[in-house]
Computed example of a mutant assay.
Amino acid sequence: MDLHEARAALRSARRVAVLTGAGVSAESGIPTFRDAQTGHWARFRPEDLASPEAYRRDPEMVWEWYAGRYRDVLRAEPNEGHRLLARLEREKGDGFFLATQNVDGLHARAGSTRLVELHGNLLTARDEVTGEVFPLAAPDALSTPPVSPNGNRMRPNVVWFGEFLPEDALEAAEDAFAAADVALVIGTSGAVYPAAGLAVETRNRGGTVIEINPTETELTPRMTFRLRETASSGLAALLDSGS
């Protein structure tokens, strides 16, 4: 398959499923989890900051880390990659589905609505007793650990090491990728399962799978077509209707 054929496949597809990872948000200046471990945080292992055990041991330290990431996310803006995916959703309507591994909320801010956030969202927190999700206060008004309107302590609303993905979100994503005519895999290393297996299901069922990533990934050999581009430039090339 060449670029012209990939464009034609996407244009004619009735059902399109998309998986995005950290590479999409990198163009908005948001570092990956490990890239954000600089300065004071460089001495910690990821498991020291993002696991149930770490939170039980020191919730104040974990919240200090996440409050910093929360401030970074709010300063960022959606980039052209986010906006192009929102445009593709408008074109495909109910036939579009987006599953993201990102926790920054930028897809929603760009206008995406047919969306599941497989790893949660940094802009919200979860009541430790009831499980209800609430938006965080503005950074200058945020005290940590935050307390829910119910009076209970809240934890970051993200999936930590050792935790399962939200069952309803994963099930919706599995259904969408199984039914997709075309799946796009954008800015993800393909190393984290079960999310990495979604597009493989599309390929196994006879669909077309297109990867957009500047470098090869663990999923590259399973792809129908590959664009060695950033998210925004790769999507721009793929959605170009002039050729």
Rank of each mutant, 00 (worst) to 15 (best):
L115I: 06
N121T: 11
G105R: 13
R126N: 01
E117I: 00
E132N: 13
W160Y: 07
N157S: 12
P156M: 08
N157I: 00
L118M: 06
T130G: 05
A141R: 15
L136K: 05
L123A: 08
A125W: 10
A137D: 10
S112M: 01
D127V: 03
P156G: 08
A108I: 00
N121W: 03
F134N: 02
A138W: 07
M154P: 08
A108T: 02
L106S: 08
A125H: 14
V159E: 15
N157Y: 13
H107N: 06
A108Q: 15
N157D: 14
V158Q: 10
L115R: 08
P146C: 11
E128A: 04
S148Y: 02
V147T: 12
A138D: 14
S143K: 15
R155G: 06
A137E: 09
P139M: 04
S143E: 09
P135N: 06
A138I: 00
G131D: 09
L115G: 01
V103T: 08
H107K: 13
D140F: 10
V158P: 05
H107G: 12
L122F: 03
L115D: 11
N152T: 02
N121G: 09
V103E: 14
P135F: 00
R109N: 05
S148K: 13
P135I: 02
P145V: 05
H119L: 08
D140K: 12
R114Q: 14
L142P: 01
V133Q: 07
T144W: 01
A110Y: 12
R126S: 04
G111W: 10
A137L: 02
R114C: 06
V116C: 13
P146T: 11
P146F: 02
V129R: 15
P146V: 11
N152M: 04
G131F: 02
N150H: 15
W160N: 04
V147R: 15
T144I: 14
A110W: 13
E132P: 03
D104E: 14
G105V: 06
V133N: 08
S148E: 10
D104G: 07
L142F: 05
P145A: 05
W160L: 09
G105A: 07
F134Y: 12
M154K: 12
S143N: 08
N121I: 03
V158Y: 10
G131Q: 03
P145K: 04
S143A: 07
V159Q: 10
V158A: 11
R126P: 04
